[in-house]
Nucleic acid binder design. Structure first.
Length: 624
RNA sequence: GCCCCGGUGGCUCAGCCCGGUAGAGCGGCAGCCUCGUAAGCUGUUGGUCGCGGGUUCAAAUCCCGCCCGGGGCUCCA
C-alpha cells in the first residue's frame, strides 16, 4: 500500500506561533520569537514515506487552484508531523518541504514557512466559510507512480526471438518463407505471436453469447475479470473440470489442494515472484503481506519440498485444479472469458530424474493434452501449436523438437530465444485462434530448470545421494474459462459459415427439450423427461403458455440439440419427431433410438443432472 | 498501467451535438388464444438516465473526478 502527502489546509484570519525547542537533531536554525501572519492559508503538512519531489510540485499546484477560489495569495507551510503515522525520514521530509516552498515562490505566492523539527506553540483563528477548512491527500500523478513489476515481466520486453515453422517431417522454415496455403489458421497465429498487430472494432463475439445463453456475465460488484456463472455456465464449467481432473488421475497424477494466498516474504516465494511473468493481487492481514496465487506452483512445490521420495517413484506427478488462480492482468487485457483476473486452472507438475526422463514424460503429456482437447470437443483445426525453446536447448535436442511436430501432425510455430529469460528451457502451447484473429493459449507444458533448487526440492538417486529434479509444469486444457471462451468462439465461427452454432452434446445444459402441444400432454412429457433422466440425459419441458412456434424458436436460440414436440400423434404412434439441430431437419425416431444415439455420442464423458427446474415455467430469467 | 470510445427500465437501443415534463422494441405480469416445427392478440408494470461533484433559474444533455464495459498499446493460461 502506498502513502501520500497529507495537508490540512486552513483559511485563517491570523496565526501566531513561537518555536519552543528543537525536537530532532536535523532541526533547522530558528529564532525563538513570536511570528504573526494575517489573512493567510496555513498548510499543516506531513510528508510520508514514499513522497517525492513530484508530489511536492503537485501539492503546490492543487493549493494554488484552491487559493484562486479564495482569492488569497499568502501561504504558510507549517510542518506538522501529527497528520501521519507513516512519516518520511526527517531529511527527506525537509527536502520535500523546501521544494514545496521554492515552488510556491516560483509561482508567485507570498510564501512563509515555519521551521522544521521544532516543537512550536501556536494560536490560530480560522474563517467560518465552507471552504476554510480542507484536508487533502496529494497523490502522485499516474506517470509518477512506480508499479512494482516482477523482473520477468520486465525481461519479457527485452526478449529477442527468432520465428520458424517446423513441418511435420521436422524441416524448419523461417516464417517469412513458409507457404501458408492451407494453413491459414497457423498463419494468423504466427502473425499474432510475432507482430501482435491486429485491428478489431468490436467486442469478441463470445461475450454476447455467454450472456445470451445465460452461461456467464461480468460482475460489477467485483474486480474486472472476476466473473459470475449462472447455472448453465456452472454446469458447463463443472463438467469440463471433471473431465480434466479424471484424465489427470488416469494419467497417474495425485490430486492435492493448496492455499490460495501466500506469504510475500517467504524466501522461496519471493524469488519465484520475480521469475514469473505475472502481476499479483496483494493483500494485508495483520502484519503479513500476502499475495493471491497466480498458479498452483507454490503450493505444490512446498508440499513436494517436505515430501521424501527417490528415483524409483519418479516421475512424480502432482495435480491441482485451482479454484482460483489470480493474475492482476492489465485492465485493457481483461476481456470476456478470454483473459480473466480470476480463473480456474488445472495445473500438473511432474518431478523428473533428468532431462531424458523429462523428455519422455513430455511426449506422453503432449499426446495426453491433444487427447483432452479432442474429448472436450475441439477439432484439430481449432488450435495451433507453438514450441518455444532456448537456442542451447535446440542445439542439443533437435530430434526431440522435431518429434513433437511430427506427433502434432500439422506444421507448428517455433520460437527460439537467444537467452533464457524464464525458469524454463522449453515449453509448448496449443493456441485457439478466435474471430478477431487473436490467439489464446489452451494446453501448455514447460521444462523448469530453476525451481527445484529455489524450493530446495530433492530426490534420492540410486547412489543414495540427494539431487534436484527437473520440474515440468503442465496445464492440460488451459484455464477452464478459456475453454468455454474457445467453444463459444468456435460456435460463432460455425454460425458465420451458415451452420447452426452448437456446444458439444455432453456440455449442452439441455440435451433434449420437450414441447407439449398443450397441457393435455404434460403428463406424458413428464414421463419422457424422467425416462431420459434415468439414462443420464438432461431433458426439460417447455410448459409455458406460448405458441408451439415460439417455444421452438426459443429452444433453437438456446442451442438445444434435440427438440421434441409432443401431441396426440406421438402418444398414439410412439414415433417421435426429433428436431435435430446438427442435422438441420426433423427425424422420425423411436425413443430408444434417440437415447441410443445420445448415449453413443457422450459415451465416457462426465455427467451432471439438469441444473435448473425441469419445467421452464418455473425458471427465473437471469439475463434479458 | 497508458490512449480512444461508450454506460439511458431486466435486455437491446433512440434522445445528448443545440440544457426546458424521459421514449421504443423485447422481457415481466394479467387476460384471451390450446396452437403441428423459428416471433398469436390485448392490456399493464417497470427508469437514482453508472456514481460523486461542479456550472446553471433549470442537467440524461455542458465541465471535472471515479467506477464499469469495449477497442488499441503492452502482455498471457
Amino acid at each position: 500500500m502506498r502513502d501520500f502527502m497529507r495537508i490540512l489546509q486552513l483559511h485563517s484570519n491570523f496565526i501566531e506561533y513561537i518555536p519552543i525547542q528543537k525536537e530532532i537533531a536535523l532541526a533547522e536554525e530558528a529564532k525563538k520569537e513570536e511570528k504573526r501572519l494575517e489573512e493567510i492559508v496555513v498548510l499543516f503538512t506531513a510528508v510520508e514515506e514514499d513522497d517525492n519531489e513530484a508530489v511536492a510540485l503537485k501539492a503546490i499546484d492543487e493549493v494554488q487552484a484552491f487559493l484562486q477560489k479564495l482569492k488569497v495569495n499568502r501561504i504558510l507551510i507549517y510542518p506538522y508531523a501529527h497528520l501521519s503515522s507513516n512519516l518520511a525520514k526527517p531529511a527527506k521530509a525537509l527536502e520535500v518541504i523546501k521544494r514545496m516552498e521554492a515552488n510556491a515562490k516560483e509561482k508567485g505566492l507570498e510564501t512563509y514557512r515555519a521551521p522544521f523539527g521544532w516543537n512550536k506553540q501556536f494560536t490560530i483563528s480560522i474563517k467560518g466559510h465552507p471552504l476554510a477548512e480542507q484536508s487533502r491527500t496529494i497523490l502522485p500523478t499516474e506517470a509518477e507512480k512506480e508499479e512494482k513489476v516482477s523482473e520477468a515481466v520486465k525481461a519479457e520486453k527485452k526478449i529477442k526471438s527468432s520465428w520458424n515453422i517446423i513441418e511435420t517431417d521436422g524441416k524448419m522454415v523461417s516464417v517469412e518463407k513458409f507457404d501458408f496455403k492451407g494453413y491459414e489458421n497457423l498463419e494468423k497465429f504466427a502473425r499474432y505471436e510475432m507482430s501482435k498487430v491486429r485491428a478489431s472494432q468490436h467486442m469478441p463475439p463470445h461475450v454476447k453469447l455467454m450472456k445470451k445463453l445465460e452461461i456467464a456475465d461480468y460482475e460489477p460488484g467485483s474486480d474486472p475479470g472476476n466473473i459470475r456463472w449462472y447455472p448453465k455456465g456452472r454446469l458447463i464449467k463443472s463438467l469440463l473440470e471433471q473431465l480434466v481432473t479424471t484424465k489427470m488421475a488416469e494419467y497417474g497424477a495425485m490430486e492435492v489442494e493448496t492455499p490460495i494466498m501466500y506469504d510475500f516474504e517467504h524466501p522461496s516465494l519471493a524469488g519465484y515472484l520475480d521469475r514469473f511473468p505475472a502481476r499479483q493481487y496483494i493483500l494485508k492481514s495483520e502484519n503479513k503481506k500476502l499475495f493471491l496465487r497466480f498458479a498452483a506452483c507454490f503450493g505444490q512445490f512446498l508440499i513436494v519440498h517436505d515430501a521424501q521420495f527417490s528415483y524409483t517413484q519418479m516421475p512424480l506427478k502432482v495435480y491441482e485444479l485451482t479454484h482460483y488462480s489470480f493474475r492482476r492482468e492489465q485492465r485493457g487485457e481483461v476481456v470476456g472469458l478470454r483473459r480473466l483476473r480470476a480463473f480456474t486452472m488445472p495445473d500438473c507438475h511432474a518431478f523428473c530424474i533428468d532431462l531424458e526422463q523429462a523428455k519422455k514424460e513430455f511426449i506422453t503429456r503432449f499426446k495426453l493434452c491433444m487427447k483432452i482437447l479432442e474429448e472436450i470437443g475441439f477439432f484439430r483445426d481449432d488450435y495451433e501449436a507453438a514450441i518455444r525453446f532456448t537456442r542451447d536447448f535446440y542445439e542439443e535436442n533437435k530430434q526431440f523438437i522435431k518429434s513433437l511436430a511430427e506427433i502434432f501432425g500439422k506444421p507448428v510455430l517455433s520460437e527460439m530465444w537467444k537467452d533464457r529469460f524464464f525458469y524454463f528451457i522449453m515449453k509448448w502451447d496449443f493456441n485457439f485462434v478466435d474471430n478477431q484473429d487473436k490467439a489464446a493459449a489452451l494446453s501448455t507444458d514447460q521444462i523448469d530448470v530453476e525451481n527445484a533448487e529455489r524450493y530446495d526440492i530433492f530426490y534420492v538417486d540410486e547412489k543414495g545421494e540427494k539431487r534436484h529434479p527437473l520440474i515440468m509444469h503442465c496445464s492440460p486444457s488451459g484455464a477452464i474459462e478459456r475453454c468455454v471462451y474457445a467453444l463459444l468462439e468456435r460456435a460463432y465461427k460455425e454460425q458465420k459459415c451458415g451452420k447452426a452454432p452448437t456446444l458439444p452434446l455432453w456440455l449442452s445444459p439441455t440435451q433434449v427439450r420437450i414441447i407439449p402441444m398443450s397441457d393435455k400432454y404434460l403428463k406424458h412429457s413428464e414421463k419422457l423427461v424422467d425416462d431420459l433422466k434415468v439414462k443420464h440425459i438432461r431433458a426439460d419441458i417447455d410448459d409455458r403458455a406460448l405458441t408451439m412456434q415460439k417455444r421452438i424458436r426459443e429452444a433453437e436460440m438456446e442451442w438445444v440439440p434435440y427438440i421434441l414436440v409432443i401431441g396426440q400423434k406421438e402418444i398414439a404412434s410412439n414415433v417421435l419427431p426429433v428436431r435435430d439441430r446438427k442435422a438441420g431437419k426433423i427425424r422420425k425416431m423411436k425413443l430408444e433410438e434417440l437415447t441410443g444415439e445420445i448415449k453413443e455420442i457422450i459415451k465416457g464423458m462426465p455427467f451432471k443432472p439438469l441444473p435448473l427446474p425441469k419445467r421452464l415455467s418455473k425458471r427465473p430469467q437471469f439475463y434479458g
